[in-house]
Design a protein around this nucleic acid. Sequence first.
DNA 1: GAAGCAACTTACGTAAAAGTCAATTTTTGA
DNA 2: TCAAAAATTGACTTTTACGTAAGTTGCTTC
Lengths: 129, 129
Amino acid sequence: MVKKYYSITELTREFGVSTRTLRFYEDEGLIQPERRGRTRLFRPADRALIHEILRGRRIGFTIAEIREIIQVYKEPPGEVGQLKLLMKRVDEKRDELRQKRKDIDETLAELDNVEEACLNRMAEIGVGT
Amino acid sequence: MVKKYYSITELTREFGVSTRTLRFYEDEGLIQPERRGRTRLFRPADRALIHEILRGRRIGFTIAEIREIIQVYKEPPGEVGQLKLLMKRVDEKRDELRQKRKDIDETLAELDNVEEACLNRMAEIGVGT
DNA sequence: GAAGCAACTTACGTAAAAGTCAATTTTTGA
DNA sequence: TCAAAAATTGACTTTTACGTAAGTTGCTTC
C-alpha cells in the first residue's frame, strides 16, 4: 500500500535536499502540501511532483520554467493563442534539450579521453598500480 | 587559411556572449589571450577553448569545474595519488552526466506529451487551425 | 586635432536559489 | 506530563555568473 503522508524530513532524506529547499518550493508555488496545524503533510502526489521538480533542476530549468510546466498540467490553457504560444515554447525547449544532450555526449567522450590519458600516465609511472 | 587573431567583439558575436563574459573568463583564469598593449588578441586556440567553456556552461558546469578540466589538459598531474583522484572525479562526473542525459530524455518525452495535449485541445476548440 | 569608436579597468549591483541563524511552536515517546 | 526532537516562521547572508556604469586609452579618419 502507498503511504498516505510523508513528513518533510522524510522527503529531504529521500531526495537529498534541505527542508529550506522544500519550503522554498512551496513559497514559490511549486507544491502545496496539506497542513495539520502548521505542520506540512506531503502526499504521494506532492512527492511525485518534487521528483519532477528536482529533475527539472538537474537539467538546468529555472524555478519559473518549472512552475510554467506544472501550471500546464494543472490547467492547460483554453485559448488558441495561448496554446500556440505554449507549443512554440515547447519546441524551443526541445531544441535546447537536444543541444544539451549533444553537449553531454561530447563531454562524455572527452572524459573518456581524460581517463585513458590517466591510465597511460599511470602505466608510465607506477607500472603496477 | 586560419585566422591569426580574433578581436573580442568578433568572438562575442560568434558565440553570443558579452565582452564582460569573456573578460570574466580571463579573470577567472580560463583563457589567456595575448595582448597588444592592453587590447586582447584571441588566437584560434583561445577561440576553441571558449567553445569548450560554453559547452561546459550549457550543461551546468561551474567555472571552477571548467577550470579544473582545462587544467588537466594544460598539465596532467604527475603524481599517482593525484591521478587516482582525478580518475575518481572523472568517474563521478560521468555518472552525473549520464543521469542528466536520462533526465533530458525523460523530459523530452514529457514535452512530447504536452505537445500532443496541445494539439488535441486545439482540435477540440478551433477545429481547423 | 577633434571626434568617434572599440577596447580597457574598476567598482558596484543584481537575480536565482538556496544556506544559516534565531526564536518559537508542535509533536511525540517514555 | 513533560522533556527531547522535529517543525515552523522570518530575517538575513551567501554564492555564482555575470550586468551596468563611469571614466580612460588608443587608434584612425575626416
